[in-house]
């Protein structure tokens, strides 16, 4: 059974946010009104977190693209009263909308703040409904949603591989953000396959995981040169 993981090379990231929009387009993520956005209700499964450090003129900005960490030991699933969010056999933390009762316990439990609540039924102008991705449902009001590692792509990739009577190969299944990254800073694959790119990169001396000391065992691995100090307070 593969264990799907993502590697993000922060040394290559330019902070362009292509991953953010690739994700929104792939997963039918609605936009909210400016007023709602001001209340912090923008939904962004993949979000680039900027960290501005230091004082003029020695200022630097780091960009941290943050999808769902797909933790091996996820805090969110433990608090779900209805088994709407759980970790599946392949290590993906699923979010099943029809089961979700909108209690938002998982939203509070997630230390990476990857879970988003639908305060309203998503709204698109009629014209824009035409470009929704048919592989992904649109969420109703009152459920929590989050990054799925584009698992619908996995279902299709598996089916395709089976139809061609072969095993799933590296590169068959890649989430939209990884596919689009202009700087080539994102990688995806099976962490349990020692020969896979992600497994090799995960062994790099540059590798670290966000908030590792919480014991969440995230499957998103970051690479950076030098030591990672963690987000500091903005100057």
């Amino acid at each position: 059974m593969p264990r799907w993981a993502m590697v993000i090379d922060l040394d290559k990231c330019t902070g362009c946010q292509a991953c953010v929009i690739a994700c929104k387009a792939e997963n039918n993520i609605p936009f909210v009104s400016p007023e709602q956005a001001a209340m912090g209700r923008t939904i962004s499964w993949m979000e680039v977190i900027p960290i501005v450090e230091g004082e003029y003129p020695r200022v630097r900005v780091r960009y941290i693209p943050r999808p769902c960490m797909q933790c091996d030991n996820p805090p969110c699933t433990k608090v779900c009263p209805v088994y709407a969010t759980f970790k599946n056999e392949e290590g993906l933390v699923a979010q099943i909308y029809p089961r979700c009762i909108g209690c938002r316990y998982c939203t509070a439990a997630c230390p990476y703040t990857v879970k988003y609540f639908n305060w309203y039924a998503p709204q698109w102008p009629e014209e824009m409904r035409a470009c929704l991705n048919p592989d992904v449902s649109t969420r109703p009001k009152g459920v929590v949603e989050k990054c799925t590692f584009c698992h619908h792509r996995l279902q299709k990739a598996k089916e395709k591989a089976r139809a061609e009577q072969r095993e799933l190969r590296e590169g068959d299944y890649v989430p939209a953000c990884v596919q689009s990254c202009p700087a080539g800073a994102m990688f995806f694959g099976d962490l349990d396959d020692p020969m896979s790119t992600v497994a090799q990169l995960a062994r790099s001396a540059r590798a670290f995981r966000l908030l590792d000391d919480l014991g969440t065992e995230p499957k998103v691995i970051y690479l950076i040169e030098g030591e990672w100090y963690g987000p500091r307070k903005r100057a």
Binding site: F86, N88, E89, E90, L92, A94, I96, Y97, P98, R99, D135, V136, S137, T148, H151, H152, Q155
Partner: peptide, 8 residues
């Protein structure tokens, strides 16, 4: 019987 396999 993974929910993810059918629920999108």
């Amino acid at each position: 019987t993974d929910c993810n396999a059918c629920h999108r």
